[in-house]
Nucleic acid binder design. Sequence first.
DNA 1: ATAATGACGTCGG
DNA 2: TCCGACGCCATTA
Length: 111
Amino acid sequence: MDPLNPFAEKVLDLVERIPPGKVMAYGDIAEYLGEGGPRQVGKVMSTWGGGVPWWRVVHADGSGAAPDHLRECLAHWREEDTPLRGERVDMRLARWDGRPAEHERSSADFQ
DNA sequence: ATAATGACGTCGG
DNA sequence: TCCGACGCCATTA
């Protein structure tokens, strides 16, 4: 098992902070951290993702991480009321920018 | 040093 | 919407 590196810790810490009902794409995480890339994030998740809410990390198109765990993803998403569109997450609504939930913006901040 | 690979992403057809 | 080709970046063969 590869030893944790600073990058991996940041990724895992961030994933743990993703609020229920929200998700982040691999690329979003890399961009948020300002280092590495989607594939690097994927490497981290495949190695140590078991200890964090991995189902909140999805592909940019909203599809789940692993096809064989699709049932598992769906179950978690439904449980957390994650906006879904068929078998994928509705990124337009579920994407988390990294900002704390705070109070919802009253007026439509959606661009 | 070169090529293949992977829990990815974007673009075109 | 689905799929293949490419691009990307670190790791491994």
